[in-house]
Design a protein around this nucleic acid. Structure first.
Lengths: 141, 141
DNA sequence: TTTTTACGGAAAATAATTATTGAATAGTTT
DNA sequence: AAACTATTCAATAATTATTTTCCGTAAAAA
């Protein structure tokens, strides 16, 4: 794990710094799909001099070397995900949380689009929005 | 058409203004999914006093009364679409154009996600990117 | 260790979008 | 038609996410 990001950074000519490791580790150990500000706030306690610009610059590098993907869930800011398998995301319009959608097969759907459009499809992003189970229950009360 | 937007605006308590009609008509008669700036540039010749803010506010109203949908195609600005059926979009990474994906059935896919996540799905955005047929040919040359 | 090079971080810059505001206009009542 | 009221237009200013600049400093190479 640690070895992986370290050597990946080095191989691509980037330096291995405490900030970069901290940002990646934080992202890899959460399921909350934070945006830049959430990451910044989370790390500020441990790294008091951490700046937002560092978060942005680091995310750009991590994206470039294929360690994180950038999520555009229709909000006013981007979220980040250290899980690199391309899976859909659902956002709850009530509480704002963003979750992964696992165990769903998108290949047939992608093929259909590829054939229908004649595009050479390189990738895709699927975003759903709705109300999560928890918030559905809250609404009833 | 014209009657439709006029009465829709009136019914919801919005005034019918030349700017609003012009913006909607421009959007309804293009397939290019413009963003606010493109709409603004297009209409400035005919409506010299048109401002970007007017475009944004008008789009907000049109969205509210259900005449346009807002596309978040992962770019740095929003695009708009007067076609209200919820269809996927493909963006060409070479030339940047955004096209509709028609004649594809998404219901089964949405149902599957709904059951898998237990979310009450209210909507979704499917966003593909790749290389359009025209740019594929250009690359060969 | 020394040298080289990239990095971190504060602050300023940028760009998309939103809010505010005063003048103009439409709608309504008299 | 005049007076009154409410709404809209569109310029300006404000806001917010993200990027860039710049320079002392830390990491990697020699």
């Amino acid at each position: 794990m640690e070895i992986c990001i370290t050597s990946l950074l080095r191989d691509k000519g980037f330096k291995v710094t405490p900030q970069r490791l901290a940002i990646y580790n934080m992202l890899a150990s959460t399921r909350s799909h934070p945006n830049a500000e959430m990451i910044f706030n989370e790390l500020q306690a441990m790294y008091p001099t951490m700046s937002l610009a560092t978060v942005y610059k680091t995310m750009e590098i991590l994206r470039e070397i294929g360690l994180v993907q950038v999520l555009n869930a229709g909000e006013d800011s981007f979220r980040y995900d250290a899980v690199m398998t391309n899976h859909p995301h659902v956002r709850c319009t009530e509480c704002g949380q963003v979750e992964d959608v696992h165990d769903i097969n998108i290949d047939a759907f992608v093929d259909e689009v590829s054939q229908g459009t004649k595009y050479q499809i390189m990738g895709q992003q699927f975003y759903f929005h709705g109300v999560c189970p928890t918030c559905q229950h809250k609404k009833i009360n």
